[in-house]
């Protein structure tokens, strides 16, 4: 599978994402510059974490208007696979490619820790290497990860299976204490209605080698790689 990792001014995790895909997974991956409009024939677009445009105005609000995002929106409309991690998730929300928004953590603090994530829907291109109910140990590191969407929209998303990942405790149970940022319904990752665009706050690219403290992130990359058209 050919992957493209978009580099915005202020992207931080583009290098780690490239490393995970190319070095660890052994797949064809390249950097795509935010000012370009060409996607270079890739089959999956990854929007990495970081602080694109300094998080000015709102996280992801400016990056959304980068020239490449027009091509990404068209790629997504044609059914192409797009994954946004952390700031990438924020950009996807701002671009209306995914419902909802991400706002300031309930604690007002930047959170950097390893959390437990439960897979709620394993029949998506992004989670097909997992089973429903699987627990993943993944790092989060963000100041604005509180997921918000209108209540009626959340209900519909749940019915359609668009809530893909949820924060839980080590036993796989939801609780207020296990919800690190106060996200509505403890949501950590969601997909669009067509299930070809996926955004998540946890960082699978930082959990791809035992040396990094875990390899659970590989399951996300393996899922996508196995979904090549």
């Amino acid at each position: 599978m050919k992957w493209g990792v978009v580099r915005f001014p202020g992207s931080l995790d583009d290098g780690d994402a490239l490393y995970a895909i190319a070095e660890v997974m052994g797949q064809d991956a390249r950097i795509l510059w935010h000012k370009d409009e060409s996607l270079g024939g890739v089959e999956c677009i990854l929007l990495p974490g970081g602080f694109s445009y300094g998080d000015y105005l709102r996280t992801g609000a400016i990056a959304r208007f980068s020239p490449i995002m027009k091509s990404v929106a068209k790629f997504a409309a044609d059914g192409g696979l797009v994954i946004g991690i952390c700031n990438g998730f924020q950009i996807l929300c701002e671009a209306h490619l995914i419902p909802g928004a991400l706002t300031r953590n309930r604690s007002l603090s930047f959170i950097c820790e390893r959390v437990w994530i439960r897979v709620e829907n394993a029949s998506t291109p992004f989670t097909r290497a997992t089973k429903r109910g699987d627990l993943l140990r993944l790092p989060i590191k963000h100041g604005e990860g509180l997921y918000v969407a209108p209540e009626d929209e959340l209900r519909q998303m749940e019915e359609r299976g668009q809530v893909i990942l949820r924060y839980v405790d080590a036993d796989g149970r939801e609780s207020d204490a296990a919800n690190p940022n106060g996200s509505m319904r403890a949501i950590a990752g969601v997909a669009n209605q067509r299930f070809n665009v996926f955004g998540l706050m946890p960082h699978p690219e930082h959990a791809v080698e035992a040396m990094l403290g875990g390899v659970d992130g590989l399951k996300i990359f393996q899922s996508i790689a196995g979904s090549a058209r």
């Binding site: 609000a61 208007f65 929300c93 909802g100 928004a101 969407a149």
Partner: peptide, 8 residues
């Protein structure tokens, strides 16, 4: 278009 996000 930009200054406010109607979701939040």
């Amino acid at each position: 278009a930009l200054l406010a996000n109607p979701v939040i």
